[in-house]
């Protein structure tokens, strides 16, 4: 009986949380004063999509993927080339991005994930570098180091998403859908298998699960999310060039995952937001802001491995408990008097 009311309460709490989050997301453009701030929020939204995907392979399955910048670039270039050279609609570009994600997931996942060990980290980092090199040198298609300009905005039945605010709402819809899918998958039997692979792959295999194909599935999901985010990015920025897709970008995505807490969908969003917004705030330190940012994150990794948000929640819970205890004690004492 008690259990039932508990799940009911949880459901209620979740609905309230989701409604509040939705309200905040809807109101945000009115609170933010400049276009630049909304642009930063748009970046948060796009990066959230990458981190939601990365969570599956690195957060849940525990396999290091350092090639998200490459996936991001592939998605961006696929849709940008299609749109600028062939006049293909950005919406079809999105489908292209998904196809790219499938190809990368299978093509890179198969050689590196059927083996035990750190091979995925090494191949993905190399993959990302190759994508960047090809983008910089295949001038006839990618425009070389100057990149691709004048990538059209998304438009729907004549309505063009050409301002930061319009794009913000469009991307918010994408992210909401991305969160829905990520949550459904992470909270299902698949999420459970991914987590168990992280903890002990031998035992999973002995349960009749083809562990290589499960890891490849997690990696493919990551690649698809990464490529879709890249496509959104291309139509959001309007221009792309290879210098934006360095290993530093991949590192940033993993930092987002880490700051948010491995394996948690809510944490993913939190991490993407913090890691995108914090450097903007730290810009007051001018030349030193990157250094300060990296040091903060490194110290955070050593001391709050569960993610900043969860570390914060833990601290608050402890404080509340202490306060309650004190109140309880003073209350009792008061009663005794």
């Amino acid at each position: 009986m008690e259990k039932k009311s508990n799940t009911m309460n949880n459901k209620k709490r979740n609905i309230i949380l989701i409604c509040t989050a939705a309200a905040v997301v809807l109101i945000l453009p009115w609170i933010l004063t400049t276009d630049y701030q909304i642009m930063v929020m748009n970046k948060v939204l796009i990066y959230t999509v990458v981190v939601l995907g990365l969570n599956f392979i690195t957060g849940l399955t525990g396999q290091m993927n350092l090639g998200t910048a490459g996936m991001f670039a592939l998605g961006a270039y696929a849709t940008a080339v299609a749109a600028t050279s062939y006049g293909i609609s950005p919406w079809i570009g999105l489908v292209l991005a998904i196809v790219m994600g499938l190809l990368v997931g299978r093509g890179l996942g198969y050689p590196s994930l059927r083996l035990k060990g750190v091979y995925l980290a090494l191949t993905t980092i190399g993959f990302s570098e190759v994508v960047r090199l090809v983008a910089a040198n295949w001038v006839s298609v990618t425009g070389g180091t100057t990149g691709i300009r004048n990538i059209p905005y998304y438009s729907l039945a004549g309505y063009v998403f050409d301002t930061q605010t319009k794009m913000y709402y469009l991307f918010a819809v994408f992210v909401a859908f991305g969160i829905f899918c990520a949550y459904r998958l992470a909270d299902s039997k698949w999420g459970r298998i991914f987590k168990s692979l992280r903890d002990n792959a031998d035992a999973v295999e002995m349960s009749g699960v083809n562990i290589a194909s499960c890891k490849i599935l997690a990696f493919t999901v990551c690649a698809i999310y990464g490529c879709i985010a890249g496509a959104l990015y291309a139509h959001f920025m309007g221009y792309i060039n290879p210098s934006s897709f360095t290993i530093d970008l991949s590192t940033n995505f993993v930092i987002m995952l880490m700051v948010g807490g491995l394996g948690s969908v809510v944490g993913n969003i939190f991490g993407a937001a913090v890691v995108t917004i914090l450097p903007e705030i730290l810009r007051v330190f001018e030349n030193y802001y990157q250094l300060i940012f990296c040091t903060i994150v490194l110290v955070g990794a050593i001391f709050f491995p569960e993610g900043w948000m969860f570390a914060g929640i833990k601290v608050i819970r402890k404080m509340v408990k202490k306060l309650r205890k004190r109140e309880h004690i003073t209350g009792e004492m008061g009663g005794g008097e």
């Binding site: 525990g62 290091m64 590192t251 491995l262 250094l291 990296c294 490194l298 990794a301 050593i302």
Partner: peptide, 29 residues
């Protein structure tokens, strides 16, 4: 040493990556 004993090797990888970035920033400065 602190990183190698952590729950997930992701922290160790990220620790070395961040260290690399810090060194790069220091070189630049």
């Amino acid at each position: 040493n602190p990183l190698r004993n952590m729950r997930s090797n992701i922290f160790a990888v990220m620790g070395t990556m961040l260290l690399g970035r810090i060194i790069a920033e220091l070189i630049r400065l």
